[in-house]
Design a binder for these strands. Sequence first.
DNA 1: ACGGATTCGTTGACATGTAATCAATCTAGC
DNA 2: GCTAGATTGATTACATGTCAACGAATCCGT
Lengths: 162, 162
Amino acid sequence: MSTNPSIDAVRWLNPDQERAWRAFLRITVAVQAGTARDLAAIGLSEPDYEVLSTLSERPGHTSTLGEQADKMGWSRSRLSRHATRMAARGLLKRTPDPNDGRGCFLVLTAQGLAVLEDAAPAHVESVRRHFIDRLTPADLIAIEQIARRLEEPQASEDRPVT
Amino acid sequence: MSTNPSIDAVRWLNPDQERAWRAFLRITVAVQAGTARDLAAIGLSEPDYEVLSTLSERPGHTSTLGEQADKMGWSRSRLSRHATRMAARGLLKRTPDPNDGRGCFLVLTAQGLAVLEDAAPAHVESVRRHFIDRLTPADLIAIEQIARRLEEPQASEDRPVT
DNA sequence: ACGGATTCGTTGACATGTAATCAATCTAGC
DNA sequence: GCTAGATTGATTACATGTCAACGAATCCGT
Protein backbone atom coordinates (compact mmCIF):
# COMPACT_ATOMS: atom_id res chain seq x y z
CA MET A 1 0.00 0.00 0.00
CA SER A 2 2.64 2.51 1.02
CA THR A 3 5.03 3.80 -1.61
CA ASN A 4 7.72 4.02 1.00
CA PRO A 5 9.55 0.76 1.66
CA SER A 6 11.57 1.91 4.65
CA ILE A 7 8.48 2.91 6.62
CA ASP A 8 6.90 -0.42 5.85
CA ALA A 9 9.93 -2.08 7.38
CA VAL A 10 9.19 -0.64 10.81
CA ARG A 11 8.14 -3.35 13.25
CA TRP A 12 4.64 -2.14 14.09
CA LEU A 13 2.20 -3.48 16.63
CA ASN A 14 0.46 -6.73 15.93
CA PRO A 15 -3.17 -6.47 14.79
CA ASP A 16 -4.72 -6.96 18.23
CA GLN A 17 -2.42 -4.42 19.78
CA GLU A 18 -2.93 -1.96 16.97
CA ARG A 19 -6.71 -2.20 17.24
CA ALA A 20 -6.61 -1.74 20.99
CA TRP A 21 -4.39 1.34 20.71
CA ARG A 22 -6.55 2.96 18.08
CA ALA A 23 -9.67 2.08 20.07
CA PHE A 24 -8.15 3.75 23.09
CA LEU A 25 -7.43 6.94 21.15
CA ARG A 26 -10.97 7.00 19.78
CA ILE A 27 -12.52 6.45 23.19
CA THR A 28 -10.77 9.39 24.76
CA VAL A 29 -11.70 11.88 22.07
CA ALA A 30 -15.30 10.69 21.83
CA VAL A 31 -16.07 10.80 25.55
CA GLN A 32 -14.26 14.04 26.26
CA ALA A 33 -15.92 15.70 23.29
CA GLY A 34 -19.32 14.59 24.48
CA THR A 35 -19.04 15.82 28.04
CA ALA A 36 -17.27 19.02 27.00
CA ARG A 37 -20.04 19.84 24.55
CA ASP A 38 -22.71 19.39 27.20
CA LEU A 39 -20.85 21.66 29.59
CA ALA A 40 -20.33 24.28 26.89
CA ALA A 41 -24.09 24.36 26.38
CA ILE A 42 -24.44 25.82 29.86
CA GLY A 43 -21.52 28.23 29.44
CA LEU A 44 -18.71 26.33 31.14
CA SER A 45 -15.58 24.64 29.88
CA GLU A 46 -14.34 21.40 31.37
CA PRO A 47 -11.53 23.25 33.20
CA ASP A 48 -14.05 25.80 34.48
CA TYR A 49 -16.11 23.02 35.96
CA GLU A 50 -13.11 21.38 37.57
CA VAL A 51 -12.11 24.61 39.27
CA LEU A 52 -15.61 25.36 40.53
CA SER A 53 -16.18 21.81 41.69
CA THR A 54 -12.93 21.34 43.58
CA LEU A 55 -13.08 24.80 45.13
CA SER A 56 -16.62 24.18 46.34
CA GLU A 57 -15.44 21.15 48.31
CA ARG A 58 -13.15 23.18 50.56
CA PRO A 59 -14.08 24.95 53.77
CA GLY A 60 -15.16 28.49 52.95
CA HIS A 61 -14.96 27.60 49.26
CA THR A 62 -11.40 28.80 49.50
CA SER A 63 -7.90 27.58 48.74
CA THR A 64 -4.48 29.02 48.06
CA LEU A 65 -3.60 29.06 44.41
CA GLY A 66 -0.69 26.68 44.75
CA GLU A 67 -2.52 24.14 46.85
CA GLN A 68 -5.43 24.19 44.43
CA ALA A 69 -3.10 23.79 41.44
CA ASP A 70 -1.41 20.78 43.05
CA LYS A 71 -4.72 19.19 43.92
CA MET A 72 -5.88 19.55 40.33
CA GLY A 73 -2.59 18.51 38.78
CA TRP A 74 -2.27 21.87 37.03
CA SER A 75 0.69 24.20 36.74
CA ARG A 76 0.50 27.35 38.81
CA SER A 77 0.78 29.39 35.68
CA ARG A 78 -2.21 27.68 34.16
CA LEU A 79 -4.38 28.12 37.23
CA SER A 80 -3.26 31.72 37.65
CA ARG A 81 -4.32 32.56 34.10
CA HIS A 82 -7.52 30.59 34.32
CA ALA A 83 -8.42 32.16 37.67
CA THR A 84 -7.94 35.61 36.16
CA ARG A 85 -10.40 34.79 33.41
CA MET A 86 -12.90 33.26 35.80
CA ALA A 87 -12.58 36.25 38.12
CA ALA A 88 -13.38 38.53 35.21
CA ARG A 89 -16.57 36.51 34.73
CA GLY A 90 -17.42 36.89 38.40
CA LEU A 91 -17.11 33.19 39.25
CA LEU A 92 -14.40 33.60 41.87
CA LYS A 93 -12.13 36.25 43.38
CA ARG A 94 -8.63 36.59 44.73
CA THR A 95 -7.86 37.55 48.34
CA PRO A 96 -4.44 38.20 49.85
CA ASP A 97 -3.12 35.46 52.14
CA PRO A 98 -2.55 36.98 55.60
CA ASN A 99 -0.09 34.21 56.50
CA ASP A 100 2.06 34.53 53.40
CA GLY A 101 2.60 37.84 51.68
CA ARG A 102 3.50 36.12 48.43
CA GLY A 103 0.42 33.94 48.23
CA CYS A 104 -3.24 34.53 47.51
CA PHE A 105 -6.51 32.77 48.14
CA LEU A 106 -9.02 31.83 45.50
CA VAL A 107 -12.56 32.22 46.80
CA LEU A 108 -15.74 31.13 45.11
CA THR A 109 -18.24 33.98 44.74
CA ALA A 110 -21.95 33.58 45.34
CA GLN A 111 -22.44 33.69 41.60
CA GLY A 112 -19.79 31.04 41.06
CA LEU A 113 -21.49 28.78 43.54
CA ALA A 114 -24.86 29.35 41.92
CA VAL A 115 -23.44 28.49 38.51
CA LEU A 116 -21.93 25.31 39.88
CA GLU A 117 -25.14 24.27 41.58
CA ASP A 118 -26.86 24.66 38.27
CA ALA A 119 -24.16 22.82 36.33
CA ALA A 120 -23.42 19.88 38.62
CA PRO A 121 -26.54 17.78 38.01
CA ALA A 122 -26.30 18.42 34.28
CA HIS A 123 -22.68 17.34 34.24
CA VAL A 124 -23.36 14.14 36.16
CA GLU A 125 -26.15 13.42 33.74
CA SER A 126 -23.72 14.02 30.88
CA VAL A 127 -21.15 11.63 32.29
CA ARG A 128 -23.86 9.02 32.64
CA ARG A 129 -25.10 9.53 29.13
CA HIS A 130 -21.72 9.52 27.39
CA PHE A 131 -19.96 6.96 29.53
CA ILE A 132 -21.50 5.16 32.48
CA ASP A 133 -24.82 4.15 30.98
CA ARG A 134 -23.22 2.78 27.84
CA LEU A 135 -21.06 0.32 29.73
CA THR A 136 -21.70 -2.79 31.78
CA PRO A 137 -20.62 -3.09 35.42
CA ALA A 138 -17.94 -5.48 34.21
CA ASP A 139 -16.63 -2.79 31.85
CA LEU A 140 -16.38 -0.33 34.73
CA ILE A 141 -14.41 -2.82 36.77
CA ALA A 142 -12.16 -3.50 33.78
CA ILE A 143 -11.42 0.19 33.47
CA GLU A 144 -10.39 0.41 37.09
CA GLN A 145 -8.16 -2.58 36.63
CA ILE A 146 -6.57 -1.13 33.52
CA ALA A 147 -5.94 2.13 35.34
CA ARG A 148 -4.28 0.23 38.15
CA ARG A 149 -1.99 -1.60 35.72
CA LEU A 150 -1.10 1.56 33.83
CA GLU A 151 -0.27 3.36 37.05
CA GLU A 152 1.93 0.59 38.37
CA PRO A 153 5.50 1.84 38.37
CA GLN A 154 7.52 -0.08 35.80
CA ALA A 155 10.82 -1.66 36.78
CA SER A 156 12.78 0.04 33.99
CA GLU A 157 10.80 3.27 34.05
CA ASP A 158 13.57 5.83 34.33
CA ARG A 159 16.44 3.79 32.99
CA PRO A 160 18.30 5.31 30.00
CA VAL A 161 17.05 3.84 26.73
CA THR A 162 20.47 2.66 25.62
CA MET B 1 -17.15 17.37 54.40
CA SER B 2 -18.55 20.11 52.21
CA THR B 3 -19.80 23.30 53.81
CA ASN B 4 -22.35 23.59 51.08
CA PRO B 5 -25.49 21.52 51.62
CA SER B 6 -27.04 22.12 48.23
CA ILE B 7 -24.06 20.66 46.38
CA ASP B 8 -24.14 17.63 48.63
CA ALA B 9 -27.75 17.10 47.61
CA VAL B 10 -26.79 16.48 43.97
CA ARG B 11 -27.37 12.86 43.01
CA TRP B 12 -23.82 11.87 42.15
CA LEU B 13 -22.54 8.61 40.74
CA ASN B 14 -22.44 5.56 42.95
CA PRO B 15 -18.98 4.61 44.26
CA ASP B 16 -18.21 2.06 41.55
CA GLN B 17 -19.25 4.45 38.82
CA GLU B 18 -17.37 7.33 40.37
CA ARG B 19 -14.17 5.30 40.65
CA ALA B 20 -14.46 4.14 37.05
CA TRP B 21 -15.00 7.67 35.77
CA ARG B 22 -12.07 9.06 37.70
CA ALA B 23 -9.93 6.12 36.62
CA PHE B 24 -10.84 6.86 33.02
CA LEU B 25 -9.81 10.49 33.35
CA ARG B 26 -6.51 9.50 34.94
CA ILE B 27 -5.79 6.90 32.27
CA THR B 28 -6.14 9.34 29.43
CA VAL B 29 -3.89 12.00 30.89
CA ALA B 30 -1.25 9.49 32.00
CA VAL B 31 -0.92 7.65 28.70
CA GLN B 32 -1.13 10.69 26.48
CA ALA B 33 1.42 12.51 28.63
CA GLY B 34 3.78 9.56 28.41
CA THR B 35 3.74 9.12 24.66
CA ALA B 36 3.72 12.86 24.02
CA ARG B 37 6.80 13.28 26.19
CA ASP B 38 8.67 10.59 24.29
CA LEU B 39 7.80 12.18 20.95
CA ALA B 40 8.78 15.62 22.22
CA ALA B 41 12.20 14.22 23.07
CA ILE B 42 12.82 13.70 19.36
CA GLY B 43 11.36 17.06 18.38
CA LEU B 44 7.83 16.10 17.34
CA SER B 45 4.41 16.67 18.84
CA GLU B 46 1.70 14.02 18.71
CA PRO B 47 -0.13 15.93 15.97
CA ASP B 48 3.12 16.31 14.01
CA TYR B 49 3.56 12.57 14.06
CA GLU B 50 0.01 11.92 12.93
CA VAL B 51 0.41 14.21 9.95
CA LEU B 52 3.74 12.73 8.89
CA SER B 53 2.52 9.20 9.36
CA THR B 54 -0.76 9.50 7.47
CA LEU B 55 0.79 11.54 4.66
CA SER B 56 3.52 8.96 4.19
CA GLU B 57 0.90 6.30 3.50
CA ARG B 58 -0.42 8.03 0.40
CA PRO B 59 0.86 7.69 -3.15
CA GLY B 60 3.50 10.30 -3.74
CA HIS B 61 3.30 11.21 -0.05
CA THR B 62 0.69 13.68 -1.19
CA SER B 63 -2.89 14.63 -0.38
CA THR B 64 -5.18 17.62 -0.70
CA LEU B 65 -5.57 19.52 2.53
CA GLY B 66 -9.27 18.82 2.85
CA GLU B 67 -9.01 15.12 2.12
CA GLN B 68 -6.21 14.80 4.61
CA ALA B 69 -8.15 16.72 7.24
CA ASP B 70 -11.16 14.47 6.80
CA LYS B 71 -9.07 11.34 6.99
CA MET B 72 -7.52 12.52 10.25
CA GLY B 73 -10.77 13.78 11.73
CA TRP B 74 -9.36 17.30 11.95
CA SER B 75 -10.90 20.58 10.91
CA ARG B 76 -9.51 22.13 7.75
CA SER B 77 -8.49 25.15 9.73
CA ARG B 78 -6.51 23.11 12.19
CA LEU B 79 -4.67 21.22 9.49
CA SER B 80 -3.99 24.39 7.51
CA ARG B 81 -2.38 26.05 10.50
CA HIS B 82 -0.46 22.98 11.44
CA ALA B 83 0.73 22.44 7.87
CA THR B 84 2.03 26.00 7.76
CA ARG B 85 4.11 25.41 10.85
CA MET B 86 5.39 22.08 9.60
CA ALA B 87 6.22 23.67 6.23
CA ALA B 88 8.26 26.33 8.01
CA ARG B 89 10.21 23.51 9.65
CA GLY B 90 10.77 21.90 6.26
CA LEU B 91 8.75 18.77 6.98
CA LEU B 92 6.28 19.23 4.14
CA LYS B 93 5.32 21.72 1.44
CA ARG B 94 2.23 23.05 -0.29
CA THR B 95 1.60 22.73 -4.02
CA PRO B 96 -1.30 24.27 -5.95
CA ASP B 97 -3.99 21.87 -7.13
CA PRO B 98 -4.27 22.14 -10.95
CA ASN B 99 -7.82 20.79 -10.88
CA ASP B 100 -9.15 23.22 -8.29
CA GLY B 101 -7.92 26.77 -8.05
CA ARG B 102 -8.96 26.95 -4.41
CA GLY B 103 -7.30 23.78 -3.29
CA CYS B 104 -3.75 22.77 -2.52
CA PHE B 105 -1.72 19.60 -2.05
CA LEU B 106 0.35 18.76 0.98
CA VAL B 107 3.54 16.95 0.02
CA LEU B 108 6.01 15.32 2.37
CA THR B 109 9.55 16.61 1.84
CA ALA B 110 12.60 14.37 1.88
CA GLN B 111 13.45 15.78 5.26
CA GLY B 112 9.97 15.12 6.54
CA LEU B 113 10.20 11.54 5.43
CA ALA B 114 13.60 11.16 7.06
CA VAL B 115 12.27 12.55 10.34
CA LEU B 116 9.36 10.14 10.24
CA GLU B 117 11.57 7.16 9.55
CA ASP B 118 13.59 8.13 12.56
CA ALA B 119 10.55 8.72 14.75
CA ALA B 120 8.35 5.77 13.86
CA PRO B 121 10.21 3.01 15.68
CA ALA B 122 10.67 5.23 18.72
CA HIS B 123 6.98 6.02 18.80
CA VAL B 124 5.94 2.40 18.52
CA GLU B 125 8.33 1.61 21.33
CA SER B 126 6.77 4.40 23.37
CA VAL B 127 3.24 3.10 22.84
CA ARG B 128 4.41 -0.32 23.92
CA ARG B 129 6.12 0.99 27.01
CA HIS B 130 3.32 3.26 28.19
CA PHE B 131 0.36 1.16 27.16
CA ILE B 132 0.58 -2.20 25.44
CA ASP B 133 3.23 -3.84 27.58
CA ARG B 134 1.51 -2.85 30.80
CA LEU B 135 -1.72 -4.58 29.91
CA THR B 136 -2.80 -8.18 29.48
CA PRO B 137 -4.28 -9.48 26.22
CA ALA B 138 -7.62 -9.61 28.03
CA ASP B 139 -7.30 -5.91 28.85
CA LEU B 140 -6.70 -5.10 25.19
CA ILE B 141 -9.80 -7.01 24.21
CA ALA B 142 -11.78 -5.26 26.94
CA ILE B 143 -10.71 -1.89 25.55
CA GLU B 144 -11.92 -2.78 22.09
CA GLN B 145 -15.21 -3.92 23.53
CA ILE B 146 -15.60 -0.74 25.55
CA ALA B 147 -14.89 1.33 22.45
CA ARG B 148 -17.52 -0.61 20.56
CA ARG B 149 -20.11 0.05 23.25
CA LEU B 150 -19.25 3.73 23.52
CA GLU B 151 -19.50 4.14 19.76
CA GLU B 152 -22.87 2.43 19.51
CA PRO B 153 -25.45 5.04 18.60
CA GLN B 154 -27.82 5.55 21.53
CA ALA B 155 -31.55 5.41 20.98
CA SER B 156 -32.21 8.78 22.63
CA GLU B 157 -29.00 10.39 21.45
CA ASP B 158 -30.34 13.54 19.81
CA ARG B 159 -33.67 13.76 21.59
CA PRO B 160 -34.31 16.99 23.50
CA VAL B 161 -33.47 16.58 27.18
CA THR B 162 -36.89 17.69 28.40
C1' DA C 1 20.09 39.93 62.44
C1' DC C 2 21.98 38.82 57.87
C1' DG C 3 22.35 36.93 53.28
C1' DG C 4 21.75 33.30 50.17
C1' DA C 5 18.57 29.88 48.61
C1' DT C 6 13.85 28.70 47.97
C1' DT C 7 9.04 29.33 47.06
C1' DC C 8 4.82 32.05 45.52
C1' DG C 9 2.40 33.89 41.99
C1' DT C 10 2.60 36.72 37.74
C1' DT C 11 3.97 37.88 33.19
C1' DG C 12 6.03 37.77 28.29
C1' DA C 13 7.02 35.05 24.39
C1' DC C 14 5.47 31.45 22.03
C1' DA C 15 2.70 27.12 20.38
C1' DT C 16 -1.63 25.43 19.34
C1' DG C 17 -6.75 24.80 18.82
C1' DT C 18 -11.44 26.68 17.54
C1' DA C 19 -14.67 30.07 15.52
C1' DA C 20 -15.47 33.62 12.16
C1' DT C 21 -14.21 35.08 7.62
C1' DC C 22 -13.01 35.56 2.74
C1' DA C 23 -12.62 33.44 -1.86
C1' DA C 24 -13.51 30.04 -5.44
C1' DT C 25 -16.56 26.67 -7.28
C1' DC C 26 -20.78 24.35 -8.18
C1' DT C 27 -25.78 24.28 -9.40
C1' DA C 28 -30.61 25.32 -10.29
C1' DG C 29 -33.58 28.17 -12.74
C1' DC C 30 -34.20 31.11 -16.33
C1' DG D 1 -25.04 30.57 -21.38
C1' DC D 2 -25.70 33.37 -17.42
C1' DT D 3 -26.45 34.68 -12.86
C1' DA D 4 -27.75 34.28 -7.68
C1' DG D 5 -27.45 31.40 -3.87
C1' DA D 6 -25.50 27.57 -1.68
C1' DT D 7 -21.51 24.88 -0.91
C1' DT D 8 -16.81 23.98 -0.28
C1' DG D 9 -11.64 25.33 0.45
C1' DA D 10 -8.41 27.58 3.09
C1' DT D 11 -6.79 31.44 5.93
C1' DT D 12 -7.17 34.93 9.70
C1' DA D 13 -8.76 36.76 14.55
C1' DC D 14 -9.22 35.17 19.03
C1' DA D 15 -8.95 32.16 23.33
C1' DT D 16 -6.21 29.20 25.90
C1' DG D 17 -2.08 26.45 27.48
C1' DT D 18 3.16 25.97 28.15
C1' DC D 19 7.84 27.38 29.38
C1' DA D 20 11.10 30.41 31.21
C1' DA D 21 12.25 34.48 33.65
C1' DC D 22 11.11 37.64 37.11
C1' DG D 23 10.05 40.48 41.68
C1' DA D 24 8.67 39.80 46.13
C1' DA D 25 8.28 37.29 50.42
C1' DT D 26 9.82 33.66 53.30
C1' DC D 27 12.98 30.29 55.26
C1' DC D 28 17.16 28.92 57.37
C1' DG D 29 22.08 28.31 58.60
C1' DT D 30 25.28 31.08 60.53
